[in-house]
């Protein structure tokens, strides 16, 4: 057995076990971490398929950014575990129906007759100096440019929408913001006024106070 085959079985088994862990673990944080493990194992399989760019980007985007935010949210929630399991038997029939429908759809689309090594030739080794990333980039920016740009605009829209939905404008003076530019520009004259006070006047004031006290 070659090392590649061994690695494939290790990654595949990890991916399957981790996916089971995602739906099986009681603790939501642990489930999220199993999902991370499943992503990493999948990225390993993609690397074996010579899709190095996709594999690494999967780790970079999903593991490095998306799942961190997931974990953030889960950690901040104070989840009481018992009510989570309350409706389990009630919703079990519905869940089973959905599962069967999904399974049926998947087996129709991903028919076993499409599977098997004879249908999928092993990826052709790239010529030296040809990089997977470069080829992907050339395709994205020529043939699929519109789809690519549309996806980018969609994401931008989602970002703007998310900010608009969550932005809480507060009244002037309710919160104090720091204007660093103004702080840097400030001159001594803006903050300090030199006041000339003749010493004699001060003495007089003191005398007056004393006489008031009496």
């Amino acid at each position: 057995m070659g090392i590649e085959k061994l690695l494939f079985y290790v990654f595949a088994a990890t991916a399957v076990l981790a996916s089971l862990g995602v739906i099986g673990s009681r603790n939501p944080v642990r489930a999220a971490l199993f999902l991370v493990l499943a992503f990493v194992a999948t990225a390993g399989i993609w690397l074996l398929l010579q899709a190095e760019f996709l594999g690494i980007v999967l780790i970079l985007v999903y593991v490095g950014a998306v799942m961190v935010l997931f974990l953030f949210v889960i950690m901040m929630l104070d989840i009481n575990l018992t009510p989570l399991r309350e409706g389990f038997t009630r919703y079990l029939p519905l869940g089973a129906v959905v599962a069967v429908v999904v399974l049926a759809e998947m087996s129709l689309v991903l028919n076993p007759q499409f599977f098997g090594l004879e249908h999928f030739p092993s990826p052709v080794a790239l010529a030296a100096g040809d990089s997977n990333t470069k080829m992907l980039g050339q395709l994205l920016f020529t043939e699929y440019l519109y789809a690519f740009e549309l996806a980018a605009v969609l994401l931008l829209l989602a970002i703007v929408a998310a900010i608009v939905l969550t932005l809480r404008r507060r009244k002037q003076g309710e919160v104090l913001y720091q204007d660093i530019g103004a702080q840097v520009r400030v001159q001594a004259a803006d903050r300090l006024t030199m006041v000339k006070m003749p010493a004699v006047v001060a003495v007089k004031e003191d005398n007056k106070k004393e006489s008031d006290d009496e």
Partner: peptide, 23 residues
Amino acid sequence: NAGLLYVLAVSSIGVYGVVIAGW
């Protein structure tokens, strides 16, 4: 080939150590 991307991806995993340690 994707050396720099690998560096960025793998070093981004390091944040899990921090998050999990804290939690």
